Computed example of a mutant assay.
Amino acid sequence: MPKLPRTVNFPVPAKPTRYEIIEGLRITAPVAAGYIPLGLAYGVLVIQLGLPWWLAPALSLSAYSGSAELLVVTLAAQNTPLAVIAVTMLLVNFRLLFFAFSFPLHVIEGRVARLFSMYALVDEAYALTAARPNGWTKPRLLAMQVLFNLTWVTSSLVGVSAGSLIP
């Protein structure tokens, strides 16, 4: 029996980090644009409810979840007990636990990056990774999540500014 030539499998070279970040931003930008009107409305709501302006970014950074944030500011403006607000946040965000089972967290290396990725797991990030289950790298995934977070916080701050101009 003749010997077959031995094939060598060379690893596919990884794409540069810059390319992966740009690709993550390109994929994410159309979806992140949907955050703008919601973030604006959230910022306006905070001001119109008579809450301090800093509550919008503080809540966005501490409990990043658009739907829950809208509920929390409404409940806070009505002097709802903190325990009720906490349980409401838990129940509204409980679905994210199930998202984590199929979210590509395994590509994220490093404790800080992994913690940020878990913190920034929102419906839209899950939807994009579920719709495109392959090709996610650490830079691409983190670029997506950073863009979502920055779009939300920035648009809510613009909403706060706009809300202060509305009588």
Score class of each variant (00 low, 15 high):
Leu51Asn: 10
Lys15Met: 11
Arg26Leu: 10
Val46Gly: 10
Ala143Glu: 03
Phe10Val: 09
Tyr119Phe: 15
Val92His: 13
Arg132Cys: 06
Ala100Met: 08
Val44Gln: 05
Val107Gln: 12
Asn93Asp: 11
Leu121Pro: 06
Ala83Gly: 09
Thr137Phe: 04
Val12Leu: 13
Phe98Leu: 14
Trp53Thr: 03
Lys15Glu: 14
Val153Cys: 06
Arg111Phe: 08
Leu61Ile: 15
Arg26Phe: 04
Leu105Ala: 04
Pro11Trp: 07
Leu51Met: 05
Glu109Phe: 02
Glu109Asp: 11
Phe10Gln: 14
Gly43Trp: 01
Ala76Ser: 14
Gly50Ile: 06
Val107Cys: 08
Leu121Tyr: 13
Ala131Phe: 10
Val158Phe: 11
Leu128Ile: 11
Gly34Leu: 01
Leu59Pro: 00
Asn149Gly: 06
Asn134Thr: 13
Pro133Asn: 06
Val84Cys: 07
Leu25Tyr: 04
Lys3Gln: 13
Val31Cys: 01
Leu59Val: 03
Gly39Met: 07
Met144Ser: 07
Thr7Gln: 15
Ala113Asp: 09
Leu45Ser: 15
Pro57Glu: 05
Val44Leu: 15
Ile166Ala: 08
Tyr64Arg: 08
Asn93Pro: 12
Leu90Ser: 11
Gly135Tyr: 09
Val84His: 05
Asn9Trp: 07
Ser60Asp: 13
Ser102Phe: 05
Thr74Glu: 08
Val31Phe: 02
Pro57Ala: 05
Ile22Pro: 00
Val146Phe: 15
Val73Arg: 06
Val107His: 08
Gly34Met: 04
Ala83Tyr: 14
Ala113Met: 06
Leu96Lys: 02
Gly39Arg: 09
Pro139Gly: 09
Gly39Tyr: 10
Tyr35Ser: 03
Met118Lys: 07
Leu82Cys: 02
Arg26Tyr: 05
Ala125His: 01
His106Trp: 05
Thr154Tyr: 01
Ala127Met: 13
Thr74Cys: 03
Ser102Trp: 00
Phe103Met: 07
Leu61Ser: 04
Thr28Arg: 05
Asp123Leu: 11
Asn149Arg: 04
Tyr119Ile: 01
Glu124Arg: 12
Ala29Asn: 03
Ala162Phe: 13
Ala68Trp: 02
Ile36Asn: 00
Met89Val: 15
Gln48Lys: 15
Gln48Leu: 10
Leu82Asp: 15
Met89Lys: 03
Ala32Cys: 02
Leu121Thr: 05
Ala143Gly: 00
Thr129Tyr: 02
Leu141Phe: 04
Leu96Thr: 09
His106Asp: 14
Leu141Gln: 04
Thr80Ala: 14
Ser161Gln: 12
Gly39Pro: 03
Gly43Asp: 09
